[in-house]
Design a protein around this nucleic acid. Structure first.
Lengths: 113, 113
DNA sequence: GGGATACTGAAGTAGTCACTTGACAATCCT
DNA sequence: AGGATTGTCAAGTGACTACTTCAGTATCCC
């Protein structure tokens, strides 16, 4: 019973931060330790650990401590949830309103629905 | 020269808020006014206007004022940028590391790159 | 004209966010 | 054993976020 229900909120929140996206980019090239992750980012190891926790909660990263080193890697689960969300909402954006509806809506936006 | 360079950051930020996703859901059923948008959300019209500004900046919504009513609609541009980002990063998540790399990385995460 | 409607703008507030520092714990290496 | 490495925990800080209230402005309609 350890399956976390797919919640899109923490995923968007996690991906909303550039530093976290940079971390994911780095992880995509293979597993890394926390301190190696911190090096190119110019922030403290503590900050990286905090970002990692957020990424883990979102199901985007997975970490595992062996010895004194915490190894961090990509976790596809979160990304799958994101893709699913996109799939479910694609039609919404793609829907082309026909000309008439469009014009009517423009004139009487309140009455249109 | 009005083309805003596609920046993924405001898009993730905009979609990170449940209220804004609710607004987009409503807009997907056709154009609505600001006050109609506020009704089911239980927040003030001012708050909705603020959310709309964020959605507009992200290229996810489009509003236009005619008379005293501001008509709000879906804007596919932002969604297209999101899809593009996903497309560019899909391989990252889909990449299946072969067993050997996997094990090596687990044992010597620091040396793996 | 004048009252109701639909929104705007400025300012304030409570809570969250990214990040830091500093003190600590565990592990590795010689 | 003992110093260096790697990470953790707790607390604090400044910036930002979502939201509010209140005082306007513009528009609609009788």
């Amino acid at each position: 019973m350890k399956r976390p229900k797919p919640n899109i909120d923490p995923i968007f929140h996690a991906l909303g931060d550039p530093t976290r996206r940079a971390i994911l980019d780095r992880l995509s090239r293979g597993p890394v330790s926390v301190s190696r992750l911190a090096e190119p980012l110019g922030i403290t190891v503590t900050a990286v650990a905090q970002h990692l926790h957020i990424l883990e909660d979102a199901g985007l990263a997975l970490t595992e401590k062996s010895g004194r080193v915490r190894s961090c890697r990509i976790e596809p689960a979160g990304f799958a949830v994101l893709e699913q969300w996109i799939r479910e909402h694609r039609t919404i954006w793609e829907r082309r309103l026909d000309r008439l509806d469009d014009v009517l809506a423009k004139r009487w936006p309140d009455k249109s629905r």
